[in-house]
Amino acid sequence: MSVEEKVKENPVEEFLRTDRLPHVWCQGCGIGTTVNCFARAVRKCGIPLEKLAIVSGICCTGRVAGYLKLDSFHVTHGRPIPFATGLKLANPELTVVVYSGDGDIAAIGGNHLINAARRNVDITVIMLNNFTYAMTGGQVTPTAPYESINTTAPYGAYEKPFNLPHLVASCGAVYVARWTAYHVVQLTKAMVEAMNKKGFSFIEVISPCPTIFLRRNRLGDAIAELKFYKEHSVIKHGADTSEVGWDETRPDEIIVGKFVDVERPDFIEAMNTHLSKRLGDKYVWWGKK
């Protein structure tokens, strides 16, 4: 940040419901770190605060909506994406961000994730991946690495984990990136780009869960994990998303970067274009022309 842009209070402060602090997240949890990035991204993206809505589901990350001083909706487990879809379609002037965890978005909410990407609904999904259901004590998720220990995979996970950037890219998402909680500057930039991107944008954030996932898998504390991200991340912008997943318990390479940034008409644009072509003057255009 340049001298001219200097700030004298915590830049995250104006976005927080400070009367609710301290928050529920554990010591060293990466969620708060990403909220710092989000606050800075909101400052930079130029979107008026009153036109920015945030939707979370049920999980540790789902609590983000409750701490952000925006129009914020904490809905049911797995369903923030369809709620966000309704918000965005009903008022196209809103910028709508879904901020939730891997269990919420990819497991119970997986059907909504792929369909929103396919429809190219103009929302941003920020999905924190801590590889476990942390809020309920550490059950196995569809993102859990092979052999990782979870309370419902006590002898180690043996299902293939999702490669989520590849999944959403294959469904038609127009912006797909992955960063870790270590990459705060890049993550902030990605959030700005995603929020300003027209269409379905998706950011996977690999994030430490010291209390549950790291402890149970004997991986150390948050600092150890952030150092692991630092040492093992490889930035590959435009990487073939089919190659960014990992099957190893602990990958040698965590491929991060901006994988997809393409143009495609979003849901509302496609609807307006198509229906006005078919119905002519009889069609009532939806949103600003």
Binding site: V55, F73, V75, T76, R79, P82, F83, A84, T85, G86, L87, K88, L89, A90
Partner: peptide, 8 residues
């Protein structure tokens, strides 16, 4: 739930 987003 989509309809509830629209309502809000």
């Amino acid at each position: 739930i989509c309809l509830q987003g629209a309502v809000w």
